[in-house]
């Protein structure tokens, strides 16, 4: 019991006799060497390389697999990979994702196959960046970027809509809705056989 800390409340319960018997040890007296050790660390650090980054003037790249803002990916012809299956929403432990599916038609096609995500929202006030949604996504439509600058002045602005999350169009990509590459099916898309370009 000697060196153990006793709760304050128990102190009050001690009788005067018990108090007199309690040995009081001066920890300070014996720890001078340890204090020196501490100061030594401080002293050495003065000569080490400075880690401070002058953010936001200077920005350093994050770790390669840093969990940042999500992105909804596209196939090489611009069609969306998201099929609106809601598995991400299902996996989400923070209930941050809302998805509503819709049927693709021949005239209005957003993704290969029958179904696409019509509504896609991620609420970054709720998101804990755990990445379970990424694991759940069956088409690799949802991945995470390294973007971490997610602050804003209103709650509404932190609910990202589908257009905020969609990957930018690269060259050769065409903004959906547009048909699949002629002569292909959704299976070819899923297998990754569609390479660049679009029939428009």
């Amino acid at each position: 019991m000697d060196n153990s800390l006793t709760p304050r409340s128990n102190d009050l319960g001690l009788t005067a006799a018990a108090k007199a018997n309690t040995p009081i040890k001066s920890q300070e007296a014996k720890s001078f060497g340890k204090q020196l050790q501490g100061f030594w660390v401080t002293f050495i650090t003065i000569f080490k390389k400075v880690n401070t980054v002058q953010y936001p003037e200077v920005k350093e790249p994050t770790a390669e697999r840093f969990h940042g803002r999500h992105q909804l990916n596209r196939y090489d012809d611009g069609l969306e990979k998201c099929i609106g299956c809601e598995l991400c929403a299902w996996a989400c432990p923070a209930d941050a994702i809302l998805v509503e599916g819709e049927t693709n038609t021949e005239d209005e096609r957003y993704s290969p196959g029958e179904r696409y995500g019509k509504v896609y929202q991620i609420n970054y006030l709720r998101c804990v960046f755990c990445g379970l949604c990424i694991e759940a996504c069956p088409t690799r439509a949802l991945t995470m970027t390294n973007e971490y600058e997610l602050a804003d002045e209103s709650r509404a602005k932190l609910i990202f809509e589908k257009e905020d999350l969609l990957a930018p169009l690269k060259s050769g990509m065409l903004q959906p809705p547009h048909p699949m590459v002629p002569g292909t099916t959704h299976i070819d898309y899923y297998r990754g056989d569609i390479k660049g370009g679009s029939n428009g």
Binding site: E86, E100, G101
Partner: peptide, 9 residues
């Protein structure tokens, strides 16, 4: 009801 929702919704 096609593609409208999931049971957990």
């Amino acid at each position: 009801y096609r593609f409208r929702a999931r049971p957990f919704d």
